[in-house]
Nucleic acid binder design. Structure first.
Lengths: 159, 159
DNA sequence: TGGATATAATAAGCTAGCTTATTAATTCCG
DNA sequence: CGGAATTAATAAGCTAGCTTATTATATCCA
C-alpha cells in the first residue's frame, strides 16, 4: 500500500510549485521576464520555427495560454511570429537578436536555481528524481487522454 | 556537475504541475470544488481552529490568496470563520457538518489520483520521491528567507 | 466542386497565484 | 497612559492558468 503517500503527493506538489515559482519569478524579475515567459523563450531558443499549437502541446498548456505569453515576448522584442508559407492559419516562432544577451543571463540563472533547489541531493539521486517526475508526467498525460471507464479513442483525423 | 539536470528541473516541475492540476481539477469538479479549495479544506479538517495566517504559512501561500479560497469554502457552507475570543483581529477556521460527506468522497479521490500519478513506481521509490520533494521545498524556503548575499535576519518580534 | 468538418489562433470571462496598500486591533515602551 | 510599531485580514489590480466560443483557413468526401 502507498498509505502515507496518499496523504501528501497531490498537495506537496502544489506547495513545492508555489515556492519554486515565487523564487524563480523573483530572480527572473531582475531581467524583466517571468518564469512562464522564460519557459516559452527557452523552448523557442531550442527549436525555432515551431507552430504555436506544437509548442503548446510540448509545454502541456492550452493554446490560448500560450498566445498571451507570446504576446508579451513579442511586445518585448525577444521573439517574433512569422506566417507559415503554405498555411495561412499558422504562425511560426523565431528568436530576435535582442533575446541573445537575455538568454545568456537566464542560462546562468537556471543553473543557480537548480543548484539551490537540489542542494543536498547527490547527482545520481537528482537524476533519478527528474526521471521519476517525467514518469509521473507521462502517467498523468495518459490518464487525461484515456479517462478510466472510457475506451481509448483512436487518433482523430480530418473528415 | 548536475549537467543535464540543469536543463530540466525548473520547467519540468512547472509542466508536471500544470498536468496534475488539470487532472485533479477535472476530477474534483464532479463535487463542485477545485483542487486549490480542496487543499484548504483538507488542512482545516486535519487541524480545526487554525488562524488564517497560520494556515497560509503552512500552505506556502500569501494570506490574501487564502482569503479568497476561504471565501468560496464559506459560500458553499463547508467551513466557517469564528472570531478569536482574545484577539479580535483573528479568524479561526472550523468545519461545518455539510463538509463531511464531501470529505469522504475527496479522500477516495485523492487515493485514486495518487495511484494514477505514481503508477509504475514502487512504494519504496514513491516514498523516497516524496521525501526528496519535501527536501527541495525546504531548500527553496530557506533560499527565499535567506537570500544569498544578505545576512540571515533574526526572528522579528513586537516592538 | 462545394458543403460539412477540422484546425490555428484568438477573445471573453473565470480561478488562483502574486505585490502593494488599507483598516482595525494589538503590543511595546518611553 | 498613549504614541509608534506590528500584526491579521482584506481590497485592488496584475500574471498565468483554464473553458467555451469565434473567426479564418484548410481538408475531406459525396
Amino acid at each position: 500500500m502507498r498509505g502515507s503517500v496518499d496523504m501528501n503527493f497531490l498537495f506537496t506538489l502544489g506547495e513545492l510549485h508555489r515556492l519554486v515559482r515565487a523564487y524563480a519569478d523573483k530572480q527572473a524579475a531582475r531581467y524583466g521576464i517571468t518564469r512562464a515567459q522564460w519557459a516559452v523563450l527557452a523552448k523557442v531558443e531550442r527549436t525555432e520555427g515551431l507552430k504555436q499549437t506544437e509548442l503548446a502541446e510540448q509545454m502541456e498548456m492550452q493554446p490560448i495560454t500560450l498566445t498571451r505569453l507570446i504576446d508579451k515576448l513579442c511586445d518585448n522584442g525577444w521573439i517574433e511570429r512569422r506566417g507559415d508559407e503554405t498555411d495561412r492559419r499558422v504562425n511560426r516562432l523565431y528568436l530576435r537578436k535582442a533575446a541573445r544577451p537575455l538568454l545568456g543571463k537566464l542560462s546562468g540563472l537556471r543553473s543557480d536555481i537548480t543548484a539551490t533547489a537540489l542542494e543536498g541531493i547527490n547527482p545520481a539521486d537528482a537524476h533519478r528524481l527528474l526521471a521519476q517526475l517525467e514518469s509521473v508526467k507521462e502517467n498523468v498525460r495518459n490518464a487525461i487522454q484515456n479517462p478510466a471507464g472510457e475506451p481509448p479513442r483512436k487518433e482523430q483525423r480530418y473528415g
